[in-house]
Design a protein around this nucleic acid. Structure first.
Lengths: 338, 338
DNA sequence: ATGAAAGCGCTAACAC
DNA sequence: GTGTTAGCGCTTTCAT
């Protein structure tokens, strides 16, 4: 059944008794301004419709040497924030006639290389990446070849185009508000310590404590990675060390929090009065018995800015600004004491 | 910076002093078995490497008249289950040298047409769809043209290839277990009543009640759609009608449940002793104060089966079986009485 | 107002 | 063992 031969522009041209060139002009709507008689145009159009003519995209792409395609690399599409981001970006792409190719790196630099190379091989017109790499070297090299925009995370003092949430300020604000109630004990559970989100959120944490007049103790800070299992283990270790759950805790990412919650759930700690604070929000947090104060990123704006930036680069306009840090909002669920 | 001219197979051939054909053979690893001297092969390979030769995918696709691409249409990528499914499918595709194109229909048949047409225009080799359409007519027509596999939802008695979770059995099992404790009152909040998940889950609900010896009252059944706002409103209306929250409630999809939870959270109902039962699981449900018993779909298996089926169709092997209904598992969180 | 032809980069059938 | 050549389907000069 599936062997229906493709109807090409030559077929249409032949049937309409015109040349390929004329047919092409007409079919691209360019017939009007550029010559081609009204009557000819109608004939071609009618026939094309009758034959269900659909231009071969591959032929056009080969000719244009463009794929009208954007690559997106995220650590985890199952992560709610990245899902929203992807969804948003996909819509923007579609409206612009671009196809979004989504790949997951699973927080794994090796896997990230694989998927990026795949995308390159597909000749994407641009690449948007939330990278798990330690260094921007690969992307600096890559950006010689095609537009690259980093988002969500950045390396050291990279000069690559970048869209991120400013984590430091809102984290500091939130921590400062909470820390006044927990001057004796406020733990920090972070992800990979060398990734920018971890670093920035830790910096925000420090600043927040300082602002609240709380002296940070080094043993308050624990690092693991963004996998829930890591959050689970850090929290388990902490509980073991203290002989009880901590009184106040900041988790630097939703994966870490997920692990903590799993532990709490398994150990019937959900009714305890631990004060949880976290980076990244989720709609279900409203329905948890434990109240969690969070920093909520503006995923849609992140997507919009990435899109603006990458399209600017593709069109060879230098985007201004080159790097963007977006504000976040606080979602406070804990009843405010005092 | 970005204007580096593409190095083609002709360039390589010229530099190596061989013909395009020979270069092509070598570069596709087919040089060995099929003629081409060892020495020639090495020369070509070396030069290709030096020049960072990367074959133009567009040229190959044009020639093969294949895109090595699969289209996936889901209602909502932000829905946890679909995210897992997509992630899984993406990995399977990558391993098979295919690129997955993910599009969202937002539960909207109009939008669904748009994205499907987009995917067709991209000449995907096959299409996997969780459709929000009332009828399979469009896809029946489409499947004349390319392989189509439906999943998650199906229309009436469609004969299209299909992969679904069997909703009736596990829903009935779960409801039967719970209903014995709630013979007087067990509400059902469904999505669009004409979509198969709603119908099957309602059927499971009926069967479960019957098995528990509970007589279903017509006013227990409410329908809306899969958007959280709909769940919110149905639940609000129900509470208004009863003057209190219901004692037992089954939500037919996670979107509906999300709305219910939002309402409960806003109205401080999370500590009430309402017995919630729902289709679709989420890792955060373990951490909710309200205990929710759920039916958990096997998203990875769904993805695996869709993949097997679509690749079979693409290779023109008829897949067996043509339609697959997968078992689900129950996630009971409510303490079992009696 | 229209057509002929070149070329995008690659592969495979067919020479030699 | 290696080269020639004919497409794949489209767009775009350049003639006419």
């Amino acid at each position: 059944m599936r062997k229906t031969k493709r109807v090409t522009i030559s077929d249409i041209a032949a049937l309409a008794g015109v040349s390929k060139a004329t047919a092409s002009l007409v079919l691209n709507g360019r017939g009007k301004e550029l010559r081609v008689a009204q009557e000819t145009r109608e004939r071609v159009l009618t026939i094309a419709r009758q034959q269900h003519y659909q231009a071969s995209i591959h032929a056009r792409l080969l000719r244009d040497n463009r794929s009208y395609t954007l690559g997106l690399v995220v650590p985890e599409i199952t992560n709610y924030g990245f899902a929203i981001f992807s969804h948003e970006l996909e819509n923007l792409c579609r409206e612009a006639g671009l196809q979004l190719l989504i790949s997951c790196s699973d927080e794994n630099p090796g896997q990230e290389s694989v998927v990026v190379n795949n995308l390159i091989a597909r000749q994407v017109d641009g690449l948007i990446v939330a990278s798990s790499m330690q260094s921007d070297a690969d992307y600096v090299a890559l950006s010689e070849q095609l537009p690259v925009v980093l988002f969500d995370r950045y390396m050291n003092d990279t000069r690559l185009p970048l869209v991120c949430t400013d984590s430091v300020t809102p984290t500091a604000d939130l921590i400062a508000q909470v820390a006044v109630h927990h001057p004796d004990e406020f733990y920090f559970l972070g992800g990979q310590p060398r990734l920018s989100p971890s670093k920035d959120r830790l910096e925000g944490f420090r600043q927040g404590l300082a602002r609240a007049g709380v002296t940070l103790r080094p043993e308050w800070i624990l690092h693991g990675n963004y996998h829930p299992s890591s959050g689970y283990e850090m929290f388990a270790a902490l509980c073991a060390r203290l002989g009880r759950p901590p009184r106040a805790l900041f988790t630097a990412a939703c994966g870490v929090l997920e692990g903590v919650l799993r532990y709490m759930s398994q150990h019937r700690l959900l009714e305890s009065d631990i004060h949880l604070v976290s980076f990244d929000d989720h709609y279900l947090y409203d329905s948890l018995s434990v109240r969690i104060d969070t920093v909520r990123q503006d995923c849609r704006q992140l997507a919009a800015d990435c899109f603006t930036m990458i399209t600017a680069l593709i069109d060879e306009r230098e985007p201004t600004p080159h790097q963007r840090f977006l504000p976040a909002t606080l979602a406070r669920r804990h009843p405010r004491l005092g």
